[in-house]
Design a binder for these strands. Structure first.
Length: 747
RNA sequence: GCGGGGUUAGCUCAGUUGGUAGAGCAAUCGAUUUACACUCGAAAGGUCGGGGGUCCGAGUCCCUCACCCCGCACCA
């Protein structure tokens, strides 16, 4: 059998990769159903499933995604080759606020504002953008060699996922886990929406701490970093046993303060640290969570003085309608002019900013939807959502890798507060709550029915009014994007329908993602699955680190321009090279410094395999594969050594030690197989001394190593396999056959 | 402040239950037209952050100090 001409040249990944991916795709073997149907996987085989963490439809994939795809593809390919019924389910994430912000930015450049377009038209623009991003992402996943089952692809905002969201919301509402409440929330004035605690990034800045008195006769000095908020003060809280104790209960009315009148009551509250600052807190109930609670305990009014645009309202003629920053200056000047300012100090403070827009977050009281994480749930053994999240990790039903993130996870949950899930943005799942039109005029004309249908209805479907034609309108708000992401492990498998997929593939085997979304996403998935399905969403969590540039900078989506494009690297060195560089020396949880030099080095490895294959195929072309000659003593020793390595490697693959396996195989291939075995075989073949034993060892080693290496470097191994294949399949029926579905161990 | 992590060869990092310190890259010397747009061989390189403890034995377990990184909460 003659060798193809391409084998005589250096390995050319560019020419190979696209063709090979198409071969895989056409084979249908990414889909486990096809594997079963064509007999490469047993019907009753153990299943292995991973849902792809859906990339945001905000643009391109970056190196972090590439790392994710590589690690997951390795797990999936390995599982498939060990005979498991293997599903890797792809999808994309609508990423509500992130995508909306991105499209708004694009429109801004065109001089268009979203409010001018209106909700419907704006959403069309977002959807168009999302579609384009989606197509790019899918294409990039394919370039990465990801063996994803595209026939099951999902989107967090498609019809099926919307049904899942509405169903989940309704059930949670009925169980009292979702409620609507008037509470202090985080407001992003730039994005014009609420955000959750997790979407805040604290930025350290220098700021001034002012110490002042409300008036000359006010007995207690107050410190603040935000003097403008003092226009909304209604009280001063001191520790019940502190030095200001004697003033508790006193009321100071008609205080002239920077253009407004204040009524300040002095209250005692345990929350106040008597040692800190002046030992007294000026209470601005509407704009501080702590103050809100203290005010509640002491029956103080809680009126807002900052609006959604971060402007002052109801604060008197000096500051009315001014931006908070302007108002601050005015108040500071007023205090100085009236000799009420006692001290100014420079301090470091961290300012809350919105993750997506960078806007400075204000605390405002608003009517929003929340998930109650502490309420006991009768249908779940009277446990709260918090407990349902803690339990499986505590009990080892979910294992997190690296293990120390379990502690981080516990720490986060223990400090968890109710989750604000409503957002005032347009792109996302609309809240499935319906309010009646303002007027209900009963068709029967019976006046006594008016108003009977004015209540709010929580429903997965649009309700109709029994009495009138006006009907119901849906809540304007959308849900936090992580609400739908939380359902991802089962919404993708068909839930709320009890599908075969759900039965076969849930709980999923592994959830692999970056450690930066442990709270955002992993915790929410555990919450949703534990509550809605009564089971864990996955058995293992594998957290990878952040990909950094050589000098340690994070290659993230927010620093998009600076990041290396994985596709450029692939074009230059090949996919296999990038994959090896991402795996060797990378352990879970640790950041990966991606160095082009390393990638180049692994490109040479692919070529080394290619050349070794050329030699082996040339030397063994007349070998009868069905009747292999016996190994001599020397060769047998190597055969045993390889078997030993394979046994180790199998174990290590199960333990997610991909770095060790990749390194071990690399080393064995190069420094034992190529340097020792091949070199020795040359001598044996030339001298015709046990030449057939040598040939046998060459071919069996190559075959075995191609299989073992395939999950790591699928392209070059498959390409060689396709050349090797006709010899293995002599006399067998033709059909698509790929290394991808070969078994590690022949049955 | 609370929590987590790191410190091992020039660089990037492995090091599984404690048993003589490893890989890749870089650098050094030598060989070579070869399956190899190179590759092969050889040698070199580390008191495993400092100090203390447990142990026959510690990079690994315990205590302590130093420096660095990352979360979370931020305090009026």
């Amino acid at each position: 059998m003659e060798l193809p001409e391409k084998l005589l040249k250096p390995y050319n990944p560019k020419e190979t990769e696209e063709r090979i991916y198409k071969l895989w795709e056409d084979s249908g073997f990414f889909n486990p159903d096809v594997c079963v149907k064509k007999g490469v996987t047993k019907e009753n085989a153990e299943s292995f499933s991973i849902v792809l963490p859906p990339p945001n439809v905000t643009g391109n994939l970056h190196t972090g995604h590439a790392l994710m795809l590589v690690i997951e593809d390795i797990m999936v390919r390995h599982a498939r080759m060990t005979g498991k019924k293997t599903l890797w389910l792809p999808g994309t994430d609508h990423a509500a606020i992130a995508t909306q912000a991105k499209v708004e930015k694009i429109l801004e450049k065109e001089g268009v504002r979203k409010n001018d377009l209106g909700r419907e038209e704006f959403l069309k623009r977002v959807e168009k953008f999302a579609k384009e991003s989606h197509d790019t992402i899918v294409n990039q996943c394919k370039k990465m060699g990801a063996s994803l089952d595209w026939s099951r692809e999902a989107f967090t905002l498609d019809e099926k996922r919307n049904l899942a969201v509405r169903t989940a919301f309704k059930q949670m509402y009925d169980d009292g886990l979702i409620y609507r409440g008037w509470k202090i929330i985080n407001w992003d004035p730039k994005g014009q929406t609420t955000i959750s605690d997790d979407e805040i990034i604290h930025e350290e800045r220098k700021t001034k701490l002012y110490t002042f008195r409300y008036s000359k006769d006010f007995p207690i000095p107050i410190s603040t970093t935000r003097p403008e908020t003092k226009l909304g003060d209604v009280g001063v809280a001191v520790h019940p046993e502190g030095k200001w104790k004697k003033y508790i209960g006193q009321l100071f009315s008609n205080i002239e303060f920077a253009g407004t009148k204040l009524i300040i009551k002095i209250v005692g509250d345990e929350e106040v640290d008597p040692e800190f600052g002046t030992g007294a807190v000026g209470l601005t109930p509407a704009h501080s969570l702590v103050d809100w609670e203290i005010a509640g305990r002491n029956s103080l009014p809680r009126h807002p003085i900052i609006n959604e645009f971060a402007k002052m309202v109801d604060t008197g003629h000096l500051t009315e309608g001014k931006k908070t920053t302007e108002a601050r200056e005015i108040v500071v000047n007023w205090l100085k002019e009236n000799n009420l300012m006692e001290k100014e100090e420079e301090i470091k403070q961290s300012i809350p900013t919105a993750e997506r827009t960078g806007g400075i977050v204000e605390s405002l009281p608003k009517l929003q939807w929340f998930v109650d994480v502490n309420r006991k749930i009768p249908s779940r053994g009277n446990k709260s959502l918090k407990e349902l999240m803690l339990e499986p990790v505590r009990e080892g039903k979910i294992k997190i890798l690296p293990e120390h993130f379990e502690k981080v996870y516990f720490n986060w949950i223990e400090n968890l507060r109710d989750w604000c899930i409503s957002r005032q943005i347009w792109y996302g799942h609309r809240i499935p709550v319906w309010y009646h039109e303002p007027i209900c005029i009963p068709k029967t004309g019976k006046e006594d029915l008016v108003g009977k249908c004015l209540e709010m209805i929580v429903s997965a479907e649009k309700p109709t009014c029994k009495y009138c034609d006006a009907g119901y309108i849906q809540d304007e708000d959308t849900l936090d994007t992580w609400f739908s992401s939380g359902l991802w492990t089962f919404s993708t498998l068909g839930w709320p329908n009890q599908t075969e997929d759900l039965k076969n593939y849930h709980p999923t085997s592994v959830l692999e993602t970056g450690h930066d979304i442990l709270f955002f996403w992993i915790a929410r998935m555990i919450l949703m699955s534990q509550y809605l399905l009564g089971e864990v969403p996955f058995h293992n969590v594998y957290l990878h680190g952040m990909v950094r540039t050589k000098d340690g900078k994070k290659m993230s989506k927010s620093l998009g321009e600076k990041a290396i494009d994985p596709l450029d690297i692939i074009a230059k060195y090949g996919n296999d090279a990038l994959r090896m560089a991402m795996i060797v020396g990378n352990t879970p949880g640790n950041d990966l410094k991606l160095d082009e030099n390393d990638i180049r080095g692994y490109g040479k490895f692919a070529n080394k395999i290619w050349n070794a294959a050329r030699f082996v195929l040339e030397q063994t072309k007349n070998l009868n594969i069905k009747n292999m000659p016996k190994l001599d003593k020397e060769d047998k020793k190597n055969d045993e050594e390889l078997q030993k390595i394979l046994a180790e490697v199998s174990k290590e693959m199960e333990e997610f030690k991909f770095s060790i396996v990749a390194e071990k195989l690399y080393h064995y291939f190069w420094h034992t197989f190529a340097d020792i075995i091949i070199e020795r075989s040359k001598k044996k073949i030339i001298e015709n001394n046990n030449a057939d034993s040598a040939r046998n060892l060459l071919l069996s080693h190559l075959t075995t190593l191609l299989k073992a290496l395939h999950p790591f470097i699928p392209f070059v191994t498959e390409e060689i396999w396709q050349i090797l294949l006709p010899r293995r399949k002599v006399g067998e029926p033709t059909g698509v056959s790929t290394l991808m579905v070969e078994k590690y161990l022949d049955d």
